[in-house]
Amino acid sequence: MRAVLHAEWTKQWSVPSTWWSLIAAIIVTIGGGAAMSALVHADTADGLARLAMSGVLLGQAVVAALGAAAIGDEYANGLIVTTVAAVPQRGSLLAAKAVVLGGTVLAATIIAASASLSWAVLLTIDAPDPQPDTAIQTVLKTAASMALIALLALGTATVFRSTATATGLVLGLLYLPPLLAALIADPAWQVRVQRYAPMSGVLTPIGNGTGREPASWSSVGVVATWAVAALGAGCHSLKRRDV
């Protein structure tokens, strides 16, 4: 398993697009949060955290594309044939990919989320600063959700063997529920759609009214369920298919 992890780690950093995607994810996350904090007035600590994290609305798309590319690009350039020949335990292969990708995205988004929150705290004068432990939790929940979104994309790309299709599907899963929920007049359904959507783990200024504290650990659990389901489906297809 160590060797598989090492191989995946090497492969991940051998393409410059990984660097570009991570830098892009960090920039749009911080930039979006900074823009919203500058534009919108916050008067509570919760409001401030929500505004600071609004860049996640953009960053999650970049992270999803990165996650899909982690295996989709191997299918596109044929490297997957070599990979499965070298690592015949396909379950371990996907697990190694998930660990490497998840760890990288987690690290990058912890940087992005803490920078966003610090920037918002510096910028905002009339809102009380969040408690230190609340702030740390906000950063961790956001980063965990982003990493899980990358894993959701990884699993989806394994099923569909295409980066582009998987990216489109995951972006649809992320952005459609809040758009469609806005059309639903029945509040019970609105809550249901928003609560069980993969974006529910992300603390943003939108998607209020889900009837519980937003971006709680249980909503990170919802994203985790989506990611696990996608990885499970991916693992199943990977084992059943020739490649």
């Binding site: 798309a61 970049v62 999803a64 980066t163 582009a164």
Partner: peptide
């Protein structure tokens, strides 16, 4: 494809 799709949707 993935980059184009992400840019357009975002």
């Amino acid at each position: 494809g993935a980059t184009a799709i992400t840019v357009v949707i975002v």
